[in-house]
Every structure is written in C-alpha cells, then in structure tokens.
Simulated scan of single mutants.
Amino acid sequence: MEGRAPEYLHKFVAETEWYTDIVLSPLVPDSWRAPLPHWAQTWLRNYIGGVLVYFLSGFLWCFYIYYWKRNVYVPKDEIPSKKAMLLQIKVAMKAMPWYSALPTISEYMVENGWTQCYSSIREVGWPMYTVYLVIYLGLCEFGIYWMHRELHDIKPLYKLLHATHHIYNKQNTLSPFAGLAFHPLDGILQAVPHVICLFLVPTHFTTHIILLFCEAVWTANIHDCIHGKLWPVMGAGYHTIHHTTYRHNYGHYTIWADWMFGTLRDPEEESKKGI
C-alpha cells in the first residue's frame, strides 16, 4: 500500500470533485457552487444523489410491483395505501440531510489519510481486492446485525430511535419507501459499520462509495414484502418477518449472522406453519 503523501491523497480529492461535478453541474450553477467549501459541496452532492437514488428506486419498484404487475406479487388488499407511502417519504426526507452527513464525513477522513482506503484496484490487484471486499462485507454484516439488534434490545434506544421505523409492521403498510424511513440517528448508526471498516480493512474508495449508495436500493427492495427465495440472501421475505415479530432476522445482505446467533426465521418454514 502506498504511503499517505499529499500527492497520493490528492487522488481521492480529485475523485470526489469529479463525482461532485457529475451530480451538481447539471443542477447547480457554478457561480453558486464556487463560494462553497469542498465539504459543503460534498454534502450537497451526497444529499442530491441520495434523494435521486431514493425516489428512483422507490418509484420504479412501486410502479413495477403495485401497478404493472398488480396482483402478481402482492395481493390487491395488501398493497400499501398512498397515505402510508407518503408518510414514509416524509420521514425519509426529514432524515436525508442527516444521512448525507455520513458519507461526507467518511470522504473527509479518506481525503485526509485517516483510513486504509486505496485509490486504484491496480495497487493491490484483483485477487487481493476480492479478499479485502469479502472481509469488508463480512465485517459490515456482523456490525449491522449487532447495531440493529441492539437498537431493539436496548429499550431506550428502541423507544427514542428505532420505533420510528417499526410503525410499519404489516404487509399493507410496508413499501419500498419505508427503506429509509428512520429516525436520522437510527439510519446513521446502522450505516456506521461501513465507515468503521475503512479503518480496519484496505478498501477501494470507489467501491466504498458505491456500497453506501447501494444501501438505499437494497433497503427499498427488502421492504416490498416479496420473498425472492435466493439463499443465502436476507431478502424481503425475511425482513417482513422482522417487522412482524421484532425479534428475528436482524441481518443485512445475508442470513449468516442471524443463523450464527440464533435469531433466524425462514419465511418458507413460516408459510408451512400457516403463520
């Protein structure tokens, strides 16, 4: 791994400025952007990017499952009401400015050489990139599982933070728009393992940014109540059980942490029981 010389760190700054130009140039006049410090432009880019990803993923997925494929995946009487979805959008939009602060902070730490991020996959090679990515994702799975579980087990945290999300506890109230409908601190805490991993594992910076924004797409998917039946993915079938029992399926992308710590409930087995 290369040293953290200023010339090397400038690669990260140049990359983040490029992302900022892509997102802000079509939307914000240069005369408005120029007076803003780098961190403010970064936050604005993350905010606009987060809003776009949230609405694009939410609207496209809702259109597909509730209108285009109406009654194919979700019975008519289980489609969430427009009122429920608008409430979820309202909660998510209140939190979005705060969500955008987390990638802004992580980028600042990367640009200042505080993390183990590297700029190009060529620096480590594809085999080591794959190894590091698997470790990164495994640590995130572990961290998100325990963060989510403790938000349930520590009652003051549940009451003050996580209960905001769990008002959506039935199939006819859950929708893709519920994916980011959290108390702002709750949403940030559940994403913090992504940032912690930057200090523990050599991480490709672009991959880290992509994975953070993939969270918005993934959380939309796991709140649509459709069981994808793709083992070992912790899809919506598992997450719907979490919203109805509150004590199972805390995991993120896969079922391994719930299996390891005894909190897994399989939707296939639940359907056989008639639950």
Rank of each mutant, 00 (worst) to 15 (best):
D21G: 04
L211A: 07
Q41M: 05
K159Y: 08
V28N: 02
Y253K: 06
L200R: 05
K76Q: 09
Y168E: 08
P184F: 00
A181Q: 08
Y64Q: 06
A220P: 00
W256R: 02
H166F: 15
V110I: 15
S106P: 03
K83T: 15
F63P: 05
P267M: 13
T104G: 07
M147T: 11
M128E: 11
I144C: 01
H152I: 10
A95S: 15
R122W: 09
G138V: 08
A95N: 07
G138A: 12
K82H: 11
G49D: 03
E78V: 01
H243V: 14
F177L: 13
W32V: 09
K272P: 02
W98A: 11
H194L: 13
L27I: 11
D224V: 05
E268M: 02
W218G: 01
L185A: 13
Y66F: 15
Y158W: 13
Y108Q: 03
E111L: 04
P37C: 10
S106C: 13
E7V: 06
L212Y: 01
T104F: 05
S106M: 12
P75E: 07
C140A: 04
V233E: 06
T219K: 01
D153R: 12
A216I: 01
K83F: 10
M96K: 00
Y145R: 04
G235K: 06
Y64V: 14
G138Q: 11
R122K: 13
G49F: 03
T42C: 12
W114I: 05
L174W: 02
M128K: 13
Y108H: 04
L9E: 12
F59M: 08
A216E: 00
Y73L: 08
E15F: 15
M1V: 06
Y118C: 08
A92G: 02
E215A: 04
E269I: 01
L133H: 13
K69W: 07
E107V: 00
I275T: 09
V195I: 08
M128D: 13
L198Y: 06
Y145E: 04
E269D: 13
Y246G: 10
S31E: 09
F261K: 05
P97G: 06
S31W: 08
A84I: 12
P176R: 05
R70C: 09
G50C: 02
G50V: 00
P184Y: 01
P184Q: 00
Y47K: 02
Q171V: 07
E111F: 03
V23L: 02
F261C: 09
Y73C: 03
T130S: 02
E17I: 12
E269Y: 09
K170H: 10
S175F: 10
K83V: 14
Y136E: 07
L9P: 09
